[in-house]
Design a protein around this nucleic acid. Structure first.
Lengths: 337, 337
DNA sequence: CCAATTGCAACAATCGATTGCATAATGAGG
DNA sequence: CCTCATTATGCAATCGATTGTTGCAATTGG
């Protein structure tokens, strides 16, 4: 088939078939209104001419875009990069789940410098629904939008009084699991590394505090509240190790990424893991299994998480008012504890 | 502003302003054809009513979608996951670069089970251009499409006689760099870990072979040609270590991900790095700096790579017939060599 | 004071597919 | 051979914004 006589729109194809555009449209949609004979003929013709209907025109008419917006709000720390392994890991799973449902994934890294960032995207008509990866510090904005707009789900913490639908792990329980495990292994002096500005982190810290209190060691906790990314974590932790008097023997990192940098900093300071210090991460990213020794961590099941996000989103798009989902965190014991 | 009287389309807004839809369109586009006074009035009205023009209608009319498709073809190994850290790292950089240019990023993980996978996406009208992350084993398909369609660039190897425009590092030179470095450090028996089905890997292996030949050690190379992902690499390498007679003292991993697993497997086999064995990776992913000891590797500058991909793509969309770009690989010496 | 020029905004066609409704073609039965 | 009931197709409006062309009014110059 030469490039010249490729039918570029439904009208061309209709002329070639000797029927009206409407008939072609129905035939390609396999509508019963068109006789089997013409239907087959038109479908065959479409195949021969390599015809592909214009998606935008179709979307305009039927008012759906066939795309789901996946947004990564970078509120409290614009320096945070989209390639953060945690985001990426979830994103990969979302891409798979959405593709299976025949939807495109519109990726956007958004810096919420005006309060309309979310509404802007929703009202633009580019997407049928929105999945937020993380709430950053935008809980208020998200809640306000969620009151009006159903097709929105978020990965992250489930806060009391929250309006929007979220999927996330039980961060509090995760924090508790981490501490209980370290206590069992004999740790007595603890440190928590992570910035409680993000609600998830706050909840993890709450869990840590609560478990320590229960164990009668409520005052044995130190906190390094710096915002820690893959790039900034190592120097921050290293500096912290230099200035403290007594190095804790149980370190709870707020994420695997932080834990990784911590392992390295400890090695450089001549501390053995898990001999001198026991370390536990959070997330169970694929790379947690790749360190030496492999990282003990609290697992968030991102495959299940992504599946839930997508499932809830489509149910909400369908009009259902779904509740949030809280996933059970799981202690994964490896070599660093 | 109540939700009721939100103008939902340009016609509503025109009625409210007492002008015609065309005038509103021009006013919002800040066209000189409309007097400053009416322009300001309409813009103010639009702001009050929170009006956002329908992107799909606009796109249909002006025949652009405002989105760039980023495709990850998974040809020779469907099990490979989109969350491969290398893909993700590049993807993050692409998202940033495209956002800066005001374009959306349509992410798709595609399994090329029929030869039309690429044409389908291009002709659907959903995207203005396509960036391929990796060519997988689809070079023929890609070349055929590239003959006709300009708005296409790919990350990956630059093969002789290639039609499509690609951006990638000089894999051959990268392989040479790796070997020269290991030789300098005293390694005498080598292994290359990676599957030469992907053209990039073949080129790296060629470089390795060539450098070894130059050093007069052409026969000191062993190859583990398994397809290695984050999940499969560790068992494969571990098994390999068990069955070989003499463990090499210089290991060239075809990627950082493979190098990571190798480090772990070596540790489990009681080999010290870099004491017994020197290891070098390829890519310089963020996580290469996070291992202990940190990984010596051949750096591909993904920030520059992403910038090139986007720049070339937009120039091609603009009609320019750009040539491929080959980036200079860089030896990053860290702790494993 | 009238004609020529300029400036603004309205009109209407257009992008390409979908779909309710009207109409033509077909076939059966009398 | 004609009528009526179906079935199969055509017609035309629609989704919402863009843009070339046209028409009207105000301004300027002679």
């Amino acid at each position: 088939m030469d490039i010249k006589d490729r039918a570029k729109n439904i009208t061309d194809l209709a002329r070639l078939a000797g029927v009206s555009p409407g008939t072609v449209s129905r035939a390609l949609a396999n509508s019963e209104l068109i006789s089997k004979k013409t239907r087959d003929r038109i479908q065959e013709l479409a195949r021969e001419h390599d015809f592909r209907p214009n998606v935008m025109a179709r979307n305009l008419r039927i008012k759906r875009s066939g795309a789901i917006g996946v947004l990564i709000p970078l509120g409290h720390e614009t320096a945070q990069h989209i390639s953060d392994p945690f985001f990426m890991s979830l994103l990969g799973n979302l891409a798979d789940a959405l593709t299976e449902r025949g939807h495109d994934l519109l990726l956007s890294r958004v810096i919420p410098n005006n309060p309309d960032w979310l509404i802007d995207i929703i009202d633009s008509g580019r997407v049928d629904g929105v999945i937020l990866i993380g709430q950053s510090d935008q809980a208020a904005v998200i809640d306000k939008v969620a009151e009006r707009f159903l097709g929105l789900v978020a990965w992250g913490a489930n806060m009391p009084g929250q309006v929007h639908c979220s999927v996330g792990s039980d961060n509090r329980k995760g924090g508790e699991l981490a501490v209980r495990h370290l206590v069992e292994r004999g740790a007595r002096k603890f440190a928590f590394l992570g910035d409680p500005i993000a609600p998830e982190i706050t909840q993890r810290l709450d869990g840590v505090r609560s478990a320590l209190a229960k164990a009668g060691m409520g005052d044995a906790l130190e906190i390094l509240p710096a915002h820690l990314t893959a790039e900034t974590a190592h120097p921050a932790v290293s500096h912290w190790l230099n200035q403290i008097d007594v190095v804790p023997d149980g370190i709870i990192a707020a994420s695997d990424v932080i834990a990784l940098s911590t392992l390295r900093a400890l090695a450089e300071h001549g501390r053995s893991v898990p001999g001198d210090v026991r370390v536990i991460g959070y997330d169970d990213l694929p790379l947690a299994n790749q360190t030496s020794p492999p990282l003990t961590t609290i697992r968030q099941d991102l495959v299940a998480g992504a599946a839930h996000l997508v499932d809830l989103l489509f149910r909400r798009i369908g009009g259902e008012k779904t509740a949030s989902v809280v996933l059970e965190p799981q202690l994964i014991i490896r070599g660093t504890s």
